[in-house]
């Protein structure tokens, strides 16, 4: 492509968002963490929030998220991002505080912290990346793993009699009075990615308006640990995850509709 030159009459209609650092990420090829990052960055850019947003990164594949965003950021202990974000938000109530968490972080070790952050109506926004597996540690079973799903710690497939059924966090957190906006979207194709972006925009607007807790769950792929190609992994989301994790808005407080 080095030889190609852009005709001058062409206009840039899409480029990397400013809230993303101009840097290489450690994510595997085709991993939709990158898509989730880009959507969050685009939403922050579009709402003009970059200079007052503080990102709380999790433990998991997104452990270096603070390096990938051009935002003030900090790195929480595993599962504790909602508690850390609570500390940041309570200290600086006029800032936008975002946690970015995977399913091991949010649904397993940090289940207590996320539940209580929602319960308190903590005015933070959570981007919850659900890929039904522990990515960083090499593909172990998560509370979100599907029944029968083979992982390195459920080599014969998740046995629900032994380990329970997938935990549906959006449905659970939507029950909290403090939740103003809880939605599940998927990143498996461009149309759904666009819907996911809109949901993230809504979540940030909810926080800006001080309406309460907001979370967008994003069904995501993990090609490496699912042992699929990036393209097959997106199809796997559609075929296997969507029936267990239906997309939709699980909580939209009345005030959110007026935004």
């Amino acid at each position: 492509m080095e030889t190609m030159t852009a005709p001058l009459e062409l206009q840039t209609v899409y480029q990397r968002p400013n809230a993303l650092e101009d840097t290489y990420t450690n994510y595997c090829p085709g991993c939709t963490h990158g898509v989730a990052h880009r959507l969050l960055a685009e939403a922050i850019d579009e709402l003009g929030l970059r200079d007052r947003t503080i990102l709380v990164a999790p433990v998991g594949c997104a452990v270096f998220a603070y390096e990938y965003f051009d935002l003030d950021g900090c790195e929480a202990a595993h599962g504790r991002a909602p508690a850390m974000a609570t500390g940041v938000k309570r200290a600086l109530p006029d800032r936008i505080v975002v946690t970015y968490q995977g399913d091991g972080d949010l649904a397993s070790i940090g289940a207590g912290e996320i539940l209580h952050a929602a319960g308190r109506g903590e005015k933070i926004s959570v981007v919850f990346v659900n890929n039904a597996i522990y990515g960083m540690t090499g593909g172990q079973m998560a509370p979100t793993s599907l029944p029968g799903q083979k992982t390195s710690s459920s080599p014969k497939g998740r046995d629900v009699a032994m380990t329970g059924n997938p935990m549906r966090m959006s449905e659970l957190l939507a029950q909290m009075e403090g939740s103003a906006y809880v939605a599940r979207r998927s990143l498996h194709d461009p149309a759904n990615i666009r819907k996911a972006k809109k949901a993230i925009l809504t979540a940030l607007k909810v926080q800006e308006a001080g309406l309460g807790f907001s979370m967008v769950e994003l069904l995501s792929s993990c090609p490496t640990n699912w042992k699929l190609t990036p393209s097959e992994a997106l199809k796997w989301i559609e075929t296997n995850m969507l029936p267990i994790y239906p997309l939709g808005d699980y909580k939209v407080a009345d005030a959110v509709r007026d935004l």
Binding site: I54, C74, A77, A83, T86, G87, V88, R90, L92, H116
Partner: peptide, 19 residues
């Protein structure tokens, strides 16, 4: 803020102290 546990409390302290 009364936290839901000491684990949450110390991590709230961590977040607040970061500011």
């Amino acid at each position: 803020l009364q936290a839901e546990s000491e684990i949450a409390a110390i991590n709230m302290v961590y977040g607040s102290a970061c500011t």
